[in-house]
Design a protein around this nucleic acid. Structure first.
Length: 427
RNA sequence: GGAGAGAUGGCCGAGUUGGCUGAAGGCGCUCGCCUGCUAAGCGAGUGUGCGAUGAAAGUUGCACCGAGGGUUCGAAUCCCUCUCUCUCCGCCA
């Protein structure tokens, strides 16, 4: 959420930010108009409340002394009626202004390149080398089905399109990846492991920015089941752990790592990645979340990205880091690095992790603040998160990159301890 | 699902015949004093948000006692709805 003061007093900053993202300013004008009305009526209400309060106090005093309070009483009643009418309009205006304010995307960081879409993103660095094959590499879904470790067909029967059943060594590979990633982040990178709920309320979804704008992307339960929503990422429950809290500076930074299944409607992605593990309604992910002091957040973003990269390095997967341009940066983020892993069968890099600094955007929505040592008042923390990594896509990358001519797949060294085997072969 | 109890400031805990209570008291914390260390002691201060004023310290207005409504001139205190927590019973992994 944007700071309403900035919107009001430094409107030009907001206008410039919206233009960079390729958004128009029509909403902004509506918001400014509402905000002005809100402030006008607020002032009137507060003045009247002051009058009422002093009259009430006077009445109390008069009654205690046994004097006649008739005159003050009629006066107070009149003011009070006025107030309740004004409070209604105020409430209405506040709700409308808030509703609008929640629709504005974050302001991107100055280091983010201006651009329209992913074609304007900047490649920052490449790690590893693409594997070379003496044969035509297969798609991961063919590999998986041939090895009988992925079953898309039966998943379609029991759930529908964009679901998969992992079986045997495939299921074990998922579990191995979860363990490997969590161990790395908790034992070596300093994150605290969290296993959060995957059903959350609307406040949580609003706190991290999924609501109100992206309701169509979410799965939700019926109203008589409390209207809970399935998380699209562990970012939601984990960031909201500290919603409406005031943290202490000495407890920052806070690092959490969470494994959860994630659920996405994938509305509007018809025809995209219809086969394979890339785009599923349900997938597993290990997510990294940080709460940090504002002055540290950009260093923390680099460190977070490095933590996610370490997973790919240890798996020996070739990848590149891409800095997203303004038009491709997500709604809540100020700056995002995508990690893209090489997929030989498709002949291209595909996103496997997205690491973002949200600055105070989520903190303001979710009211996550901190108190500096020896200083009065509070400030909003900066929040960050990144996948570390998406498990399904990692499985896909491993299958494609380490496939052998005989159809078997070599297990990366780092996973063998968890897998108990060094190769998946056809039975 | 049935029956009951409760939700107050960083924590504990007063306050429920409505009115100088933003909230007693204690703990904790901060600053100062004192004590050759430690402990104890003394003094002052110590919530959040949105405004006004001021260079700043500060002064000041309004709101907030789980959330939202209502009654009233006035509510932490009365009424309604919701949420959460706890106890007992039932049911279930």
């Amino acid at each position: 959420m944007l700071d309403i003061k900035t919107v009001r007093d430094q409107t030009e900053i907001i206008v410039a930010a919206l233009k960079k993202r390729g958004e128009n300013t029509e909403l902004l004008e509506r918001l400014l108009k509402l905000e002005n009305e809100r402030r006008d009526i607020l002032q009137i209400v507060e003045n009247n409340r002051q009058t009422r309060n002093s009259l009430s106090q006077e009445i109390g005093k008069l009654k205690k002394e046994g004097k006649d309070a008739e005159e003050a009483l009629t006066q107070a009643k009149a003011v009070s009626d006025e107030i309740s009418a004004q409070e209604n309009t105020l409430r209405d205006l506040e709700a409308k202004a808030m509703q609008l304010l929640l629709m504005f995307p974050n302001i991107t960081h100055e280091s983010v390149k201006e651009g329209r879409d992913e074609s304007d993103n900047t490649e920052i660095r490449v790690w590893g080398s693409k594997p070379e094959f003496s044969f035509e590499p297969k798609n991961h879904w063919d590999i998986g089905e041939d090895l009988d470790i992925l079953d898309f067909e039966r998943a379609g029967k029991i759930s529908g399109a964009r679901f998969v059943i992992s079986k045997g060594a495939g299921a074990r590979l998922e579990r191995a990846l979860i363990n490997f990633m969590l161990n790395l982040h908790t034992k070596e990178n300093g994150y605290t492991e969290i296993l959060p709920p995957v059903l959350v309320n609307r406040e949580s979804m609003t706190g991290t920015g999924q609501l109100p704008k992206f309701e169509d992307d979410l799965f939700k339960l019926e109203e008589d089941s409390k209207g809970l929503l399935l998380i699209p990422t562990a970012e939601v429950p984990v960031t909201n752990m500290h919603r409406d809290e005031i943290l202490l500076e000495e407890n920052l930074p806070i690092y959490y790592a969470a494994y959860t299944p994630c659920f996405r409607r994938e509305a509007g992605s018809y025809g995209k990645d219809t086969r394979g593990l890339i785009r599923q309604h349900q997938f597993n992910k290990v997510e990294l979340v940080k709460f940090v002091r504002p002055e540290d957040s950009y260093n923390e973003l680099e460190a977070l990205t490095a933590n996610a990269e370490e997973v790919l390095k240890r798996l020996g997967l070739c990848y590149r880091v891409v800095s997203l341009c303004t038009g491709d940066t997500g709604f809540s983020a100020a700056k995002t690095y995508d990690l893209e892993v090489w997929f030989p069968a498709q002949g291209k890099y595909r996103e496997i992790s997205s690491c973002s600094n949200f600055e105070d955007f989520q903190a303001r929505r979710a009211s996550i603040r901190f108190k500096r040592q020896g200083k009065k008042g509070t400030e909003f923390v900066h929040t960050l998160n990144g996948s570390g990594l998406a498990i399904g896509r990692t499985v896909a990358a491993i299958l494609e990159n380490f496939q052998q001519e005989d159809g078997s797949v070599i297990i990366p060294e780092a996973l063998r301890h968890f897998m108990g085997i060094d190769r998946i072969v056809k039975k």
